[in-house]
Simulated scan of single mutants.
Amino acid sequence: MSRPLSTSNEPNMRKELIRLRMEMHRQQLLYHSQPLSHPLRQIRNMMVARRESSERSSGKAPVVIATTVILALFGRRLGRIGKLARVALTLYPLIKGQQKLKQKLR
């Protein structure tokens, strides 16, 4: 028919399952606490990764992204300065590409 619900091996299996879950949670906590416990190392790693990715691709600088957001939100209210900033933001990739080309030719 049906076997009994509790066997002698079942409590041991449950204990082992609980131990494995506790270890998994401990590892997750360690992994997620690394940026908090070593913020300077995390920032340094982010800067190195950004530098490497910018060498491979045409990644935009954080300043350009922030400027784009500000101009999208407040561009009309800034008047003439907003227009000049939009022109500068449009020309930035061209100037940056020209600088990279000069560096490659050297």
Rank of each mutant, 00 (worst) to 15 (best):
P4T: 03
L5S: 09
L5I: 12
T7R: 04
S8P: 01
E10M: 11
N12Y: 10
L17D: 09
L17E: 11
I18L: 03
I18T: 08
R21G: 10
H25Y: 02
R26E: 01
R26W: 01
Q27V: 02
Q28V: 00
Y31M: 00
H32M: 06
S33T: 05
S33R: 05
S37W: 06
P39A: 02
P39K: 01
L40F: 13
R44V: 00
N45M: 12
N45D: 15
M47W: 04
M47T: 12
R50G: 10
R50N: 07
E52T: 07
S53E: 15
S54K: 02
E55L: 15
S57G: 10
S58C: 06
G59E: 14
K60C: 11
A61W: 04
P62I: 05
P62G: 04
V64W: 00
I65G: 10
V69E: 07
L73N: 06
G79Q: 08
R80V: 12
I81T: 14
I81H: 13
K83I: 08
L84R: 11
L84D: 08
L84E: 08
A85Q: 10
L89Q: 01
T90F: 15
T90M: 15
Y92H: 10
Y92M: 08
K96N: 11
G97V: 03
Q98H: 13
Q98L: 14
Q98D: 12
Q98V: 14
K100N: 11
K102A: 15
K104N: 04
R106Q: 15
